[in-house]
Design a binder for these strands. Structure first.
Lengths: 216, 216
DNA sequence: TCACGGTGTTAACTAGGAGAGAACATCTGC
DNA sequence: GCAGATGTTCTCTCCTAGTTAACACCGTGA
């Protein structure tokens, strides 16, 4: 039996490529040098347990899978299309300014709307006074995706979603799942993720994003 | 959040003791010095990935287990069907224990359910690892109310709601409003509040309760 | 065409810690 | 008493995790 640790490097690279993150981006997040990440992936060096752990966390996989010899390669590449302009801010909970009201009630035809890339809209469900929170209905038109470049995004905090209508392909780390009416999810937003509507009808969902107030 | 790596040593010791192996025996098997094993268990030193791996293998546990905070390995994530319990706890976000998973996906017929007083149920929408958060679908049968005594309740944190179906009378402070499909609210939970279903059909809504980040 | 930003790779180096080895203080049971 | 377990805490060494270069390779745009 060969040493499973030999596979660690290649395995890491495989998973990283699946997430679409660059080696340098990983390094930036882990606060190590890019060269070191390269050395790890090529088996020229080994991480400490600490970096191994945060590496696994960042990629959204349990540590154990890093020791497994082979994972099946899922294609899931990209597909770019027409260009649109986007609302851009680095964190989804900064989408709206926080209000001062302690109570907020919103009815459906009265919502504040933000239009993102290519058929993605956010409608605010409550004008909260909390700065670190965003409560909204998200809409993905058929073909729409979080990021038209196909890259996965990540940010501090947690995200919770409830599917109201339509279907949504959700990719979190190397986990891919299909969300349909009534399904719900919750996940650590620091795991790289992406949503895509591969179906024929628009997807609607109740979404809740909140930061943990951690700064880096 | 504390560094899970701090737990590694104690966790190892705990598991080792459970297996009945002596520290020196472990050292012999791993081909390292007994003192080093001791240093690891007491957090005075950290193993390399290689020794960490063979350590886990020797103890017969997946590596991930070594990073979990405290005992009770028990992999089962409460997958089974609707378990029914009576709810009494002081704060709605303590309704379920926080899980360790960073990603949680739940489908509608697989939710963990808590039955409250008089026709009120909570169904968990995500087994979050955040302690201060609760993401759920709430159900108010016709005639059901938050508190059958008619009193208003309050607690720390914030609450956000989205009405899926039916009607709900919401009282927050001296504000009374009617929630119907598509309506949404958000409010400071420290304001005394109460919900009542005065209609003829059950009310369903997506609810999100979260504390102010206070640890307990 | 060159410049510039991105990507991943390798070499040379260093500081810190992984791990050794001894000596320590317990407990048994003979 | 001693001989054998157990786990702990020193001190010390040498290896290696992680650095800073500089490297070559794209694209893209001016």
């Amino acid at each position: 039996m060969k040493d499973p640790i030999e596979y660690l490097g290649p395995r890491l690279k495989e998973i990283r490529l699946k997430t679409g993150l660059s080696l340098r981006e990983i390094a930036r997040q882990l606060d190590v040098s890019p060269s070191f990440v390269s050395q790890i992936e090529n088996g020229k060096s080994q991480p400490s347990v600490a970096t191994l752990y945060s590496l696994a966390k960042l990629l959204g996989v349990p540590v154990d899978v890093l020791f497994e010899a082979h994972g099946e390669v899922v294609p899931a590449p990209t597909k770019s299309s027409a260009e649109v302009e986007r609302g851009n801010f680095e964190h989804p909970m900064d989408a709206w300014d926080s209000s001062r009201a302690r109570i907020s009630a919103v009815n459906p035809n009265n919502r504040s709307v933000i239009t993102m890339d290519s058929g993605v809209t956010w409608e605010r469900l409550a004008a909260t006074s909390e700065g670190s929170v965003n409560f909204m209905e998200i809409n993905y038109e058929p073909g729409a995706e979080t990021n038209k470049t196909g890259e996965l995004i990540f940010h501090d905090g947690f995200e919770y979603g409830y599917a109201l209508d339509g279907e949504l392909e959700v990719t979190i780390g190397d986990l891919v799942l299909q969300l349909s009416k009534g399904h719900s999810i919750g996940f650590d937003s620091s795991i790289p993720h992406r949503f895509r509507n591969l179906g024929k009808s628009p997807f609607k969902g109740v979404w809740f994003v909140h930061g943990c107030g951690i700064e880096h």
